[in-house]
Design a binder for these strands. Structure first.
Lengths: 195, 195
DNA sequence: GGATGATCGTCGCATAGGCAACACATGGTA
DNA sequence: TACCATGTGTTGCCTATGCGACGATCATCC
């Protein structure tokens, strides 16, 4: 395979990703061909396959990069899962979903599913990483941590997604006020005692 | 040398030109090094030399492309040097100079001189081409055509340049009304008889 | 004067990318 | 059915680009 440090490789991958993001704004995922991507990226079609197995792998990477960019500094370096960190995760997730649905034509169910799964997985990993760094209860039990992270990530994602169709969808503070107590209580971490 | 049709070549040249245009907005021509250009273009310094002899050759090409883009369709395909064509050339030249001085830090006398010469030359060539297509007086005399084109191009450029420091610099219509009769009379082409 | 550092322009070698062709799958259509 | 067009992955060969090094030039500083 190619050397991931070579500047030509970095540039080509960036070109492919940019072309793909651009195409997603114009046509549905299913309608995008490798030829389309290669043309817009000004690379050869064969070169695409030197970098990505197929367009699904490309979607996966683009999604990962985009969501990573949404996660605030404070969350990435959080030492404990606090109310503040929880809020930031809720808002970042919600914002990501809003941007995603605004920018991409959603005529492809397969893409929506793939992105859903990807984001949920990243949320869970992010949360689990914070749990492991902090003084989380049953910190030694790996399974316990993972399942708590899975539930928390799913809850946040589910709520953020649901909020798309709510009347007061601009009141993300309301969203956070609903999700935070639920999650923190579920984790046994709520300290403000209003649950 | 490299094959000018290869898509890698086209892309690399475009990257170099874009990087150079961008750098010209931030620092003076003299202060720009080949290393700067290569870094911003995400190419290797040695690759630069496969495409341009030095930064002067690059400036020449970038200037040519930019001025070409300013010349209206009607002028490019003009069959005769009419009042209208003359006006369009005056305004395009003036607009080019305005953009140029607005976008580039003019701490380099050498660059200003090079661009001046380049634009004047392109103007003259454009005008000579129109003369050759139309029913220009003494059409058979190549020298006559060339020198008329040279004077016309120089006059237009000189006036457009001078107009930068005029109080009513926004009244480009006034500029055109001053230059057009002068040029057209000089060429013996003025038909409206107000000279 | 000499030392130092930055840039220039060029070289040979290693590697990523372009090209043309291939077999294969899919879907429309005569 | 057979046919044609279009998209997918893959391959071998060739070319453009990246890299590291080189000597040369120039400016700065001691």
């Amino acid at each position: 395979m190619v050397n991931q440090e070579d500047p030509r490789v970095l540039r080509t991958r960036e070109l492919i990703q940019a072309a793909f993001r651009d195409l997603l704004r114009r046509k549905g995922f299913d309608a995008i061909t490798i030829k389309d991507i290669a043309q817009k990226a000004t690379i050869n079609r064969a070169t695409f396959y030197a970098h990505f197995e197929d367009k699904y792998a490309l979607l996966d990477e683009v999604t990962e990069l985009a969501f990573d960019a949404m996660i605030p500094e404070q969350v990435t370096h959080a030492q404990a899962f606090t109310d503040d960190i929880c809020d930031r995760l809720i808002l970042a997730t919600h914002q990501y979903i809003v941007d995603f649905y605004r920018n991409c034509r959603m005529d492809s169910h397969s893409m929506a599913t793939l992105v859903d799964e990807k984001i949920k997985k990243m949320l869970q990993q992010t949360i689990a990483r914070i749990f492991l760094k902090g003084d989380f209860p049953q910190r030694e039990d790996r399974h316990h941590i993972e399942i708590m992270a899975a539930m928390t990530g799913s809850a946040i994602y589910g709520a953020a997604h649901y909020w798309l169709n709510v009347e007061e969808k601009d009141r993300t503070d309301v969203l956070a006020d609903l999700v935070r107590p639920y999650v923190m209580n579920g984790l046994g971490l709520y300290r403000n005692g209003d649950a």
